[in-house]
Write a protein that binds this DNA or RNA. Structure first.
Lengths: 242, 242
DNA sequence: GACAAGGGGACGTCTAGATGAGCTTGTATG
DNA sequence: CATACAAGCTCATCTAGACGTCCCCTTGTC
């Protein structure tokens, strides 16, 4: 393979040259879940001290490419999930299509009066009753997104008492006979608020992607669901096709 | 003040005890912009090696509490709360508008060999010459995006010597007679890397939106430009209409 | 067959010392 | 007075060595 020509005289720190070399190698030849060579071996290979090599790997850990497991080794993480935004995209579908196991857990299921933002987006009067469902989704056993769904209570009625996870849009289609269609999405980024960092198992300084979207009845065009999703920024990438 | 009772036997790593002690002290007694004691002094005070102390400060840097300035010292950053509230900066820009709204400054204009990612997206061989133009865009005198544009050097030729800002797509249309068409965009979020935090005038712990997009000749469908934009997360919100 | 002990591999933490590089400041010099 | 340079402070990087802790798997015993 290469000569691992890391060179101090170039002005670029060794650990950075090494982290870039490893990153490239990983992206080219490693699959998610694969294990890197042990630190002492890599240190030997690049002819640097183990501390320097650890510094290099620290960078990769920090950028979300690999993960350390004490006592076991360093492992390649899944790349960011490419979640396309289209008229009919569904979370679960696009993930499963990508060959990932999915799981969704209902964290909250409550009826509350609609606040200003929710009411406006659902075209309801302020204070109208809405069902608030908060779900945590995982892919390959790892938390991935937290989504707050708001739906007019009168529309979804009592049916949602039975919702326990899985594709929400499928549930709506099955039980209510309503096909949903995405109208628009707003994408922004923030540091995690509230419990989101804990739920998503990320440090508080790692940014999340926020997606606000409104889904409407594809026939009547009336809004049915307003969703505010918070996605792990290190594992999600949004694709917008035009 | 305290006795700095860091203790190895407690099972908690020294560097973590120290970072927590410093964090508490900073939050209580330091204002944004204040400077921490030099590393050797702190190391002495906690009776640890300077490496261990640096590890502790690394944690604080990583969490966005403080910032290192080489040759100067370690300084306390503003808390993130100071950045959240904006009254009329509520500009919801579409991707297109964000790309074209300008008062733009050219930061760099170089011909470089294409790296792997750039080469792949422009459908060139690795190492082929590409023109790298980096622009900083402002709105209301405030910076809001940094964009790296990559274009095949043979295509854009010498023409770009005259490019000094303004709409890049207009420039390409005028000078080269090429109409561009966006193929797709990938949206992700990161903390700012390199000089981006400085250029955008944000603290290093404030997330940015990254947009990778490829623009192609609308006739031949050959890729002409690969753009990697970094937008201030507190000023920009992307709207995706469908 | 079940369980416990032990070995070895891998990451985690800490110490010690040396050198490099960026920034500011003060002083010497033209 | 202004410029140039040197000193000194600060963080940045690298090396070397030593243990500690966690985890898995094998081995041995009951």
């Amino acid at each position: 393979m290469s000569l691992y020509a890391v060179d101090l005289s170039s002005g670029i720190p060794l650990y950075r040259q090494i982290s870039q070399a490893i990153e490239e190698e990983v992206r080219k030849h490693y699959k998610p879940g694969a294990q890197l060579s042990p630190e002492p071996v890599l240190a030997e290979r690049f002819s640097v001290n183990r501390h320097t090599l650890r510094h290099a790997i620290d960078e990769l850990v920090n950028s979300g490419l690999v993960e350390r497991r004490r006592g076991l080794g360093v492992f390649v993480l899944d790349g960011p999930h490419n979640y396309g935004i289209h008229k009919h995209t569904r979370f679960t579908k696009s993930l499963e299509a990508a060959g990932n196991t999915t799981e969704s857990v209902v964290l909250r299921k409550l009826i509350i009066p609609a606040g200003g933002g929710v009411a406006r987006r659902l075209e309801l009067g302020e204070g109208a009753e809405v069902l608030w469902v908060e779900t945590l989704r995982k892919a390959n056993e790892r938390p991935f997104s937290v989504v707050s769904h708001f739906m007019p209570a009168e529309l979804v009625g009592q049916v949602f008492a039975e919702y326990e996870g899985g594709s929400l849009h499928d549930f709506i289609a099955d039980r209510l006979g309503i096909e949903l269609e995405r109208q628009y999405s707003l994408i922004s980024t923030r540091l995690p608020q509230g419990d989101d960092a804990t739920l998503l198992a990320i440090p508080r300084h790692q940014p999340i992607l926020r997606i606000k979207s409104v889904n409407a009845n594809s026939v009547t065009r009336r809004p049915v669901e307003y969703a505010l999703g918070r996605l792990r920024g290190d594992r999600v990438e949004l694709e917008v096709k035009l």
